[in-house]
Design a protein around this nucleic acid. Sequence first.
DNA 1: TTTCTCACA
DNA 2: TGTGAGAA
Length: 128
Amino acid sequence: MKEKELRRSLAVLPIGTVMKLTSLSARQIRYYEEQGLVIPERNEGNRRMYSLNDIDTLLEIKDYLTEGINMAGIKHIYEEKAKEEAEKKARMEQPLTDADVRRILRDEFLSVGGLKKEDQFTFRNRTL
DNA sequence: TTTCTCACA
DNA sequence: TGTGAGAA
């Protein structure tokens, strides 16, 4: 399930193809790029090269526009989506804090000992 | 031929 | 957002 994502992210389509696939004008496609909604790569000749993922987001943008959402609204949608993914990544890369480890170990002990969470388990006068 | 950037009777 | 100019 990772191979597919890599291929979908490969920028291989020139703007002309994207125009046909999305029925958007080159002007619009470039404008959406200015707004940070799509970030095509550039080839040797400074030509924009789009990936299948770019096509998808451009089609999404078209839908939002049809639904009456303006550019500002669309930008908000993608900004929040990016923010959520950033937080998710941060959580994945975030090592367990001491507090997390202690909580996990405590639950383990309570489970193995057949004790209930409601029972207090103390060690050296500290709740574990 | 296609795409790029820039600018606006 | 469209359109045209001049360059690559």
